[in-house]
Amino acid sequence: MIRAIGVVMILGLLLSGSLLAQDANRILSRVDSVINAPKDQKATMKMILVDKQGNQKIRQAEFMQKGSEKRLLRFTAPADQKGIAFLSLPNDVQYLYMPAFHKVRRIASHVKNTKFAGTDFTYDDLSAFSYSRDFNARLLETNDQFWVLELTPKPGVEKDYGKLKMWVRRDNYYPVKVEFYDPAGNLWKIMERRQITRVGNYWVAREMEMQDLKEQHRTIIQLDDISFDLNLPDKYFTRRYLKRGK
């Protein structure tokens, strides 16, 4: 009898764990559907790089995204980076255009986890992506304001991060904070999304900060001139468009 109760308890625990995981994965899917909700979007981007002494460097870029899988980013400043453009396509395909070499180069996966143009974001961080496609979620905590999820890369997904910890707003499913841990479990980076406002039908964070604790460096991204659902044509997300001037 005692053994039977034990078995029932273990099954119950497993079942509740599984339900929690299902809840967590459902929350993560909602997160994706909120941050990738617009059919397409266009904005200008200001990246402020701040080192540990407080010195700043500024990058500016134009940004376009279609759905959750196509994204194009083109630098407009500073002058030595102007024209450098990055295209992210489905199936982890990424291209970089370097005007100085007059060439579009495909980015191999070893580059995807390196810093993008000196920022604290990697190429992978700046790609169009979906959390739920790449990570399994586990619900760690629920409070009045947030769900706290732990994300671990799905088998076969190559990430430099061992796990992520994500704070998701309960009122609108917007992820306001993400902690990135290295494979050894040490806290490595912290990303915070701020100035979260509703523009038309969509929630958007106008400011995002990524802090690299190891390098004591942070990058603040400010979005401006944001517009949604412009019916951006697919041809904007091609190699042809990537190397177009100005």
Binding site: R105, R106, I107, A108, S109, H110, V111, E158
Partner: peptide, 10 residues
């Protein structure tokens, strides 16, 4: 040609 094999750019 350009691509990658097991994460190495070729």
């Amino acid at each position: 040609m350009a691509g990658e094999i097991m994460g190495v750019g070729i």
